[in-house]
């Protein structure tokens, strides 16, 4: 049992776990009922899965050149995936692509109603709040 065997095994386990996380995210994407829930599936398991795959890859390759590149790829994903998620979430909410019947509390539409639709940052994309909770959401299957 040499070091390289141990590292290879650890790397392989990381690769498998990472692939499983990607699969879990994909299953969530298909099974969750509305866009915002799917967003959760898109951000968390995907980021962890990618980090695990990159870790497995650097444990397998074991060169500094590879490790620095992989750290860079991981950091890019880490900083960018919340940005995309927020843009999509904001857009989905403002276009009423929300299953309001699945929401227990909705304080954003209360806040938007309170400010009369203006969202206070003056960027001109103010929107009306989504329909009231008893109205069926637009995504009723």
């Amino acid at each position: 049992m040499t070091w390289s065997t141990v590292l290879d095994a650890a790397g392989g386990v990381c690769l498998l776990l990472g692939a499983f996380m990607c699969l879990a995210g994909a299953v969530g994407l298909v099974r969750f009922p509305d866009t915002l829930s799917r967003l959760h599936a898109a951000t968390k398991p995907q980021t962890l899965g990618l980090i695990l795959v990159l870790m497995g890859l650097s444990l397998t390759l074991r060169t500094w050149a590879a490790v620095t590149t992989l750290v860079f790829v991981g950091a890019t994903q880490f900083f960018t995936s919340p940005v995309t998620a927020q843009l999509v979430g904001r857009s989905a909410y403002r276009h009423r692509n929300v299953r309001t019947d699945l929401l227990i509390v909705d304080e954003l539409s209360e806040a938007l109603a309170r400010d009369g639709g203006a969202d206070g940052d003056g960027d001109g994309d103010d929107a009306r709040p989504p329909a009231s909770p008893d109205a069926p959401g637009p995504l009723q299957p």
């Binding site: 969530g28 009922p33 968390k44 398991p45 699945l102 929401l103 227990i104 539409s109």
Partner: peptide, 19 residues
């Protein structure tokens, strides 16, 4: 978080959400 989403993805119940 990943474990939570994974469990939810494979479980039969529908999530109840909040904003």
């Amino acid at each position: 978080a990943s474990i939570q989403v994974t469990r939810l993805a494979f479980s039969p119940k529908r999530p109840r959400n909040a904003v």
